[in-house]
């Protein structure tokens, strides 16, 4: 009797286990594959880092990476570059537009992990990605300061817009970002926040900080969603939100009827940076290829391509190129 009970429990646990695993596995696949590194890889690389920290130049680490490659870390293999980036670059279609050119030129496959800026940098910190394309300037600086990256370059910027229902019930049209936020808080108009520490969320918080408001209450909805999902929700609820222009325009094309109410404010600019991850993080990091990627994306021809992106479809550039090389070429 008891034996049967025990075996019954085992079977049930298996069933529950299987069903429990099934759902999250589908959505959290990237995490699952990177998990093994969590426990082992960093330890191995952190020890030498303590003693050999000054060696953070590129040449030796490149050599190290080259010799280590055959040990076949399954995440990092030659011919594959892992780019961790924000959802906005991916969702806007910019990467689909740019990356094939890089892949063809260098004969490498770029795998894009599209997450929030916060997670992207965390992934970089753990050495689970080779190169980052993110937009969260303060966090990027902290990332570099902590020795997590070897090189950081400006790539481009886009801008944020405050959007809302066309009839603008809160009456914020044409205001500055800070004033608009003040007005929204004052009128307790429903505002959706990403609430996910993404670059957009960070930007939103910095505007609230400038407005000296701590948003709380039923009107302030912290949704914890990606930009696309949040726009869907804003549409459904006819609420206000802060969005990057690229994602917003993409969604307008597919039926979003919310309109831009505040734009062009300096406070709404959103600079993107590219960072190569410190190869000492992880023996599998493709430092050489990462550097090539960095130099490629800030090169003038690619910057030109960036400036052209979106022109055809939306009649405006979604991203404004901003690299030093580009600016020099423009005579700025």
């Amino acid at each position: 009797m008891f034996k049967r009970f025990v075996s019954c429990i085992c079977v049930l646990l298996m069933v529950v286990g299987m069903t429990a695993c099934a759902a999250p596995a589908a959505t959290e696949a990237p995490k699952a594959t990177e998990a093994p590194q969590a426990t082992e890889a960093p330890k191995a690389t952190e020890a030498p880092k303590a003693t050999e920290a000054p060696k953070a130049t590129e040449a030796p680490t490149e050599a190290a990476a080259a010799t280590e490659v055959p040990t076949a870390q399954f995440q990092h293999t030659a011919g594959r570059l892992i780019l961790a980036t924000t959802t906005s670059t991916y969702d806007s279609g910019l990467l689909d537009y740019l990356l094939p050119m890089f892949e063809e030129e260098y004969g490498v496959k770029v795998d894009v992990v599209s997450v929030g800026s916060g997670e992207a940098m965390k992934i970089g910190e753990r050495g689970d990605a080779d190169v980052l394309l993110v937009h969260s300037r303060k966090a990027e600086d902290a990332f570099m300061e902590a020795g997590n990256g070897t090189r950081r370059e400006d790539v481009m910027y886009n801008d944020f817009v405050i959007i809302g229902p066309a009839d603008d019930p809160a009456g914020i049209k044409g205001m500055t970002a800070v004033d608009a936020f003040k007005k929204l808080a004052e009128t307790q108009t429903e505002f959706l926040s990403r609430g996910d520490k993404s670059g957009t969320h960070t930007k939103e918080l910095s505007i609230w900080a400038s407005a000296e408001i701590t948003p709380t209450g039923d009107w302030y909805v912290s949704a914890g969603l990606g930009m696309g999902d949040l726009l869907t929700m804003a549409q459904e609820k006819q609420a206000y939100t802060l969005s990057d222009r690229a994602t917003y325009l993409t969604r307008v094309k597919s039926g979003l009827d919310l309109v831009v109410l505040v734009e062009g404010d300096k406070a709404l600019l959103n600079p993107y940076g590219v960072i190569t991850v410190n190869p000492e993080k992880n023996s599998g990091i493709q430092a050489d290829m990462a550097t090539k990627f960095l130099e490629w994306i800030i090169s003038v021809p690619v910057q030109q391509k960036i400036s052209e992106f979106g022109m055809e479809e939306y009649g405006q550039s979604l991203f404004i190129p901003d690299s030093t090389a580009w600016k020099a070429a423009q005579g700025q």
Binding site: G116, G118, D196, S198, V221, S222, A223, L225, D229, M233
Partner: peptide
């Protein structure tokens, strides 16, 4: 997680569940 995220919206103090919170915290890098 996928469906509740989509129809629930992962709203703090309203529709955030353990699974959607896990996705969010992961996305935040925490």
């Amino acid at each position: 997680v996928g469906a509740v995220m989509m129809v629930g919206g992962n709203i703090e103090n309203a529709t955030r569940t353990l699974t959607t919170a896990i996705v969010l915290e992961t996305r935040k890098g925490d």
